[in-house]
Simulated assay, not measured.
Amino acid sequence: MQEFWQFAGSYWWLAFPLAGIVGGWGRSWSKSGERRHERKIELYKLAHPEVAGLDVSATKAAAMVSAYEEPAPQGYSTADVAKLMADHDAVNRRWLDYELDVGKLIDFPMMSDVREPLTVAFLRAKRDADALRPIAATDVAAKSRWDDYRNAVNAFAVSFDVAEREAHRIKDTSFSDVDRQRLGTAKKLVKIAEDEAASPAERQTAYKRARKELDGLIVLPDVSVAALEKKVARMLGGAQ
């Protein structure tokens, strides 16, 4: 005991910093306790808004917003499906840009050539994506269906990108010089057939000649022929 008092007498000055440290710990613990108490009060107010005098309707609205913002338990939401459907539509529009434009198909014939593996690949991917497409975003109620549709749309988009890049790269280089001249002539004739300034006779003649030039070179999809014929017929009808 005497040794303790000797130590205390020699190091009495340590009492001041130690007191500050202990006091700081005490204040920190006290503030932490106050914060915990305040959180409990706030949670109680949210759970019992009518007792706390809060606007019940506003509290419910806040709770609904909070619930809406939480991620869907299945890993996707209706908004995700709607966005995927929009992405699907965007790729289909890019495909239709070729299908409905004979001049564009003449520039990039690979996009309609079913002998090309890349063309076959994106057409198959399109078929799969179209088959899995829901009527409405709310129709996708199972995670497995969401995964299947998402994978199909992604495969369609990627395969179309690959085919389109290759088609733009090779253009008409796979044709002979004579055949390329025929393609060039056919494109000029298609422009005349679609030209409102041309006479009805010129448009009709140009259309028939264009089909003849393309015969054996490019097999135009039925939808392409129908679109061109409809356009020419509309112009001929308007001129009468």
Rank of each mutant, 00 (worst) to 15 (best):
M110R: 15
M111H: 10
M111I: 15
S112N: 08
S112C: 15
S112K: 02
D113F: 11
V114Y: 07
V114S: 11
V114H: 10
R115N: 15
R115M: 12
R115H: 14
R115P: 03
P117A: 06
P117C: 05
L118C: 01
L118W: 02
L118S: 09
T119C: 14
T119Q: 09
A121S: 12
L123H: 10
R124K: 13
K126V: 02
K126Q: 07
K126T: 05
K126L: 05
R127T: 06
D128V: 13
D130C: 00
A131N: 04
R133H: 08
R133S: 12
P134R: 06
P134C: 05
P134N: 04
I135F: 07
I135E: 13
A136M: 08
A136W: 07
A136V: 08
T138A: 12
T138N: 05
D139K: 00
V140K: 00
V140C: 00
A141F: 01
A141N: 01
A142V: 04
K143T: 12
R145K: 06
D148N: 06
D148Y: 01
R150Q: 09
N151V: 02
A152S: 07
A152I: 06
V153D: 00
N154S: 09
N154Y: 08
N154R: 09
A155V: 07
F156C: 01
A157R: 10
A157K: 08
V158N: 03
S159V: 02
S159P: 02
F160W: 09
D161H: 08
V162Q: 12
V162W: 10
V162N: 11
A163F: 08
R165Y: 06
E166C: 02
E166H: 10
E166Q: 11
E166D: 11
A167N: 03
H168S: 02
R169T: 09
R169S: 14
I170H: 01
I170C: 02
F175V: 00
F175R: 01
F175G: 00
F175H: 01
S176R: 00
D177F: 03
D177K: 04
D177I: 03
V178A: 11
V178L: 02
V178P: 00
V178N: 01
D179N: 10
D179Q: 09
D179I: 03
R180W: 02
Q181P: 00
Q181V: 03
K188E: 07
K188V: 05
L189M: 03
L189V: 01
L189K: 04
V190L: 09
K191R: 12
A193V: 02
E194F: 03
E194H: 04
E194Q: 13
E194K: 14
E194Y: 05
D195S: 15
D195T: 06
D195P: 03
E196N: 11
A197R: 13
A197H: 12
A198T: 12
A198E: 12
P200M: 09
A201Y: 10
E202F: 07
R203N: 11
Q204H: 14
Q204I: 05
Q204C: 08
A206Y: 12
A206P: 10
A206I: 10
R209T: 14
E213V: 06
L214E: 10
L214C: 13
D215S: 15
D215H: 15
D215K: 15
G216K: 14
G216V: 14
L217F: 13
